[in-house]
Each structure stands twice: as structure tokens, then as C-alpha cells.
Nucleic acid binder design. Sequence first.
DNA 1: AAGTTATCTGCAATCGTTTTTAGCAATTTG
DNA 2: CAAATTGCTAAAAACGATTGCAGATAACTT
Lengths: 350, 350
Amino acid sequence: MSNATISDVAKKVGVSESTVSRYLSGFKVRNSESIRKAIKDLNYRPNIMARNLKSGKTGMVAVIVPDITNPFFAAVVRGAEVAAGDEYMLQLISTGDDPVREEAAIRRLNGRVDGLIYVPAKEDSDAITELEDYAFPVVFVDRVISNLSSFDSVLADNQTGATLATKHLIDHGHSAIAHIAGPSASTPGKGRTEGYFAALKKAKIEKNHDYHVESDFTVLGGYQAMMSLLALKKRPTAVFVGNNLMTIGALKALRESKVNVPNEMAVIGFDDHELSDLVNPPLTVISRDAHLQGALAMSTLLERIRDGYQFPPKQLKVDSNLVIRHSCGSTCLYRKTDTGKRILSSSTSS
Amino acid sequence: MSNATISDVAKKVGVSESTVSRYLSGFKVRNSESIRKAIKDLNYRPNIMARNLKSGKTGMVAVIVPDITNPFFAAVVRGAEVAAGDEYMLQLISTGDDPVREEAAIRRLNGRVDGLIYVPAKEDSDAITELEDYAFPVVFVDRVISNLSSFDSVLADNQTGATLATKHLIDHGHSAIAHIAGPSASTPGKGRTEGYFAALKKAKIEKNHDYHVESDFTVLGGYQAMMSLLALKKRPTAVFVGNNLMTIGALKALRESKVNVPNEMAVIGFDDHELSDLVNPPLTVISRDAHLQGALAMSTLLERIRDGYQFPPKQLKVDSNLVIRHSCGSTCLYRKTDTGKRILSSSTSS
DNA sequence: AAGTTATCTGCAATCGTTTTTAGCAATTTG
DNA sequence: CAAATTGCTAAAAACGATTGCAGATAACTT
């Protein structure tokens, strides 16, 4: 039950604590055999707290996400965990989009972890600026703080993805194309909106400000945004929705309003899902590898923990792909992949 | 940057370390004002490792789930986190259904956490029996180890839920009802199969062993199981699928085989999802409150951490509800709820 | 066999707290 | 006014490991 200490082992064998400690760290020791036995007999496990106190390391990495229930963030976490191997364990903080909880969590992190992978809920939190004072390295995922360029980040190629999405709608003959956007204060919200406008501009379609509605990345937000779009005197014929949750909300609004997809309204979402294939109609989306984003974040973080900031901060980006199903109407413009999904690859990683 | 220690604060104020420590623990202290100031000036934060070493507590609770990417487990984790408040932080381990990783993780937990919320991937792991030797309390969620009754658990009412599901199919006039089951060695797999057979028996429908196919709770497993069901000379007309992932797989198989749901095959799943509403056709499912399961698990765990095992182990169960949509065909037998879902509540919690 | 070097060992200090102990000053009491 | 009580305080001993240092064995030299 209550754990034996290193001194119990030492006593039992008749050597000093330091000898046992050395044995544990892999040094050559005379009575290694009897030490091994004593450790087993006493069921001795080193006290991690004591070890950490001495070493100043914790063997822990924190991951902060707005909501673990969002499959995208879940995949990021999973990717991070896989990349951590068994060198580091994960401390998960899912803040429920609550900046207050988030700040409090960050403050409690100091001294508990060796590093942080951080997907901020809001990008102007006070606690974030404190991050620079903390002793551990931070890697931002998906969202960055504009005035904090001293940290590494792993983003998606939002612009290219959004352009791809919008262009896909244009290629289907649409010109009344709406965009349900995330908060313009957020990296992905801003980037995707930029991509949307860029595609419109390139196709010489003039901006209709009614068609650009800013929402909040939630199901309810997407629902309301879609409703407001449907209430317009001149309805759009197509919509690019800025994330997975809002797409669900938008789809609910469309079904509730008995608007046919894709005939009356073409829909393209951002972020894929196992079920996107099975919804009615199967959803065309921009997808990117969330698992990879998490894994990249973890590996750059581990690098920082190991080597510090002798190299300048990295800004990594992962590809966005267009996954064509049926929610924009059918086309056969694109190549088929072996998975049965028609994919148009987009941007290159840097 | 590098953190100030309590002795730095003490020196600056001109008192002893113990006085600062007492101040921090809320005792009355003469120079409290100047201590407060010194702490702020030096940006002093107590070293958690040292504090933990002394107290023997870690302020951490581990949560082990087979796969954080499964929305059910994500909801459990979220529920647990909310219930933890800011008293405890969460250490997440998502083992990817790999028992080896799981065992390794459990072993590394000792000394790092004050308690464990555990959804085992396999229910016969070696490491699990070691759990009894460990110093921290454990609460099992969703699955229990049969020969380990000394721990608390929070389960779903699998039997009642499965009976409800099967009865729903029977009520629609089906008698050739298949069941794609989870591993019979697992608590939910076993329980749901029992409920399925119980409902058949009550309706005096004789068992057809071809209709009971045991799978593995994965998308692929569900797909293959459905395929084998479709290959039968006498196809079933309805199927009760034992979890969310297998339901996705089964649905894919059905779509690929161009089998119409619900006309040629009625489908009912276990565990609801935000998108269940939007798939084609909207999915009728048994649902239970995963968030609640996580929260209950956390609160019983915190109780154990506080009070130890002076009270006997609790076995908690949460309700299963029938959420009727369209994948079994339409009925109006059931009451409508204000959320627009028609719900038939089932079992009582204990 | 003696001298030199290479290994291994125990002692003691250290990491940054908390907590027990004993002591001192101020206040209250008989 | 002495004695008892109260209210803080500082010093020191934990908590359980790791590590530099110096001494003790052991293993090579010649």
C-alpha cells in the first residue's frame, strides 16, 4: 500500500541510498542483483514528486483546448498524445470556451508542467501576455495571438482552404455566395474570411455585406446565422460555413426551414467528420489533418523543452483539402481517391 | 523568469520562511502587508512539486479512456473535468484501444495522481489487478472488471436500454431483428446483448444465432458485421447496433449496398450524437448522459479521496432513453419533448 | 609487491516547501 | 505583582529523491 522509499530499499540491502539511486539511473553497481530483488520485494516505486523537485522537471505537458467535445480538438489532443510517446504525460484542460476558467488554468500551470500546447478560446486574454514570463515553452495551435510572435505555432492554411471552398461554389455557377464566419478576432475566423473574399475578388464577384455574417463557432451560432441569411429578401444560393459546429447548426436551420440542399442552397463546411459522409446530403468540406496538427505541435514543443529558444520561433502550416461529396451538387471535375472521396489538394505545408 | 523561492520572500521582508508559509496558508501574521507586497514584487509562486512532496498529495486526477476521439468518451472527460472544479486538474490518457499502452500508463500513474477515473479498453488486463495495490482510489466508468468489486463504478443501464431498443423494433412489427454487439467480454457489450435477448424472449421471438454478430465497437467492425448480416440468405429486417462507432460503420455498409433505411432495414443505435439528427435518415438511438456519467465518476472519486473507503463501494447507473427519429420508420406512439425529439424514458438511476 | 589508475561507495548537501517545537513578548488573570 | 494565558515568531526537522566530493576497493601496471 503505502509506498516504500529508497531508504527502505537501501536498508534492506545494506547499502547507502545513493547506491540504490545510482542503480536506478543505470550506473554499474556491485550488488545490483540484490538491489533489484529488494526493489521488487518491497514493491518500491520512486516518488515522482521528490524526483521532480530535485530535477526541476515535471514530465508533464499541458494541452489547453476550448472544448474537448469538439471532434477537431479531440483529434488535436490525440495527435499530441501520440507524439508525446511515453516521455511526457498529458494534462488536459478543456475550458468550455470560458476565458475566465482558461486564465485561471494557465496561472495554475506554472511549475506543474514543462510545456504547453495551447488553443486559446479568446485571443486577447490577459493571462496570455503573462505567458511570456513563465518558465515553460508554449506552442499555439490553430489560433495565435497577434502581438505574441515569440512563440511557435501550428496553424491550418485557412486562407487557401477558404479560397478553395469558395472557388468550388463559384465553379458550380454560384455568385450569391454567403459566408458564415467565425469571430473576426480569431485566427481561423479571420483567415477563412480573407480566403472567402479573395476568391470572390478573383472571380470579380462584388462583395455583398449581407452575405458575410460573423458568428461564434458554435452550433447555435451557425443556426442563427443561417436563419438570418434565409430571412434576407435576396437569399444567397450557396454558403461557405466557417467551422464544423456552425455547419451543424446551419444544416439544422436549413432542414427546419425546409430548404433543399444542394438545390436551393449549396453548403460547404470547414473540417471533416466521420459522419459528414452520412448526413443528408453527404457534406462537401474543407478538411485538414487535426491529428497531424497536434502531433506537430507536440514535437516542436518537445524540441523547445530540450533545446530552448536557440532557434527562432517556427510557424508551421498544414494543408487544407477539398473533400467533395454532394452538398454542393454533383461534379466530376475532380479526381477520385482510393478511399472513394474525391479530393482536390490545395496548399503546401511550410 | 526563474522563480523566486519562499526564502527569497522571507529574506526581503526580514522574517523567517515559516512566517511566509503561514501567511500563505491563511494564518494571522504581523507583517502580512509587507509579505503580500514582497510576493507580488518578486512574482513569487509556490513550487508545487515541493508542496506536493511534503503533503503527499498531487492535486491531479487521471482519466483513462480508450479513445478521446470517440464523442462519448470526450463527453465523459468533459463531465469529469467540470465536476472536478478547480480543486483537481486532469491528466488525460487516451490509449488508442491499446492494452499495452494502457498498462504502461497505469504503472506510471502511481505517485503522480490522487485518483483515477478509468474506462478500461480490455477488461482482463494484468495491470488492472495491480490497481488494488496502488495507493489511490479508482472509479470505473462504463465498464467494470468482474472480479474487482472493491471499486466504485458508474455504468449506463445497458440492459434496459437495449431492451427498449429491441422492443421499439418489435413494436414496429419486426421479428427478424439482428444485433451487432460489442465484445461479450465487455460490460456494455454483454449488458446490451442481454437486454436484446430479454426483449426477444418477452416477445416470444426465438433466437436466431445468425442474427447475433459480435464485433468490436469500431467503425470498421460495424461495417463488416453489417456486411455479413446482408450476406445472409434470410436477411434481418431490423438491426440494433451496440454503440455509436459501429452504427456509423453499419450505416456505411447499408448505403454502399444500397439498402434503404428504414424500409428495407430499420436501424437503431446506442449513444446519441449531435449529428444523429442530420444523417440520412435521422437516426433513432438509445441515449444516455455521458457528461453526467463523467461528473458522477468525478464526484464519487473526490469523495473517496477525501473520506477513503469507510463506506462500501457504490455502483451507480445512469438512465438510458429512447430517442425516436426516422431510422426505424415513423411512429407517433411516443410523446414529444420540447426539444422536438420524441423521447421515451426508460430506467431509473440507482 | 608496490604504485598507479579506474571503479565504485557512503556521506552530506540540496531541491522548496510544511509543520512541529520551543521561545518570546504582550496581555489577561487571581 | 507574579502567574497564567494568548499570539506570534524563528529554528529545525521532515518529505524522498539526486549528486559532488572524497575515500575505499578493485583492477591494472611495471
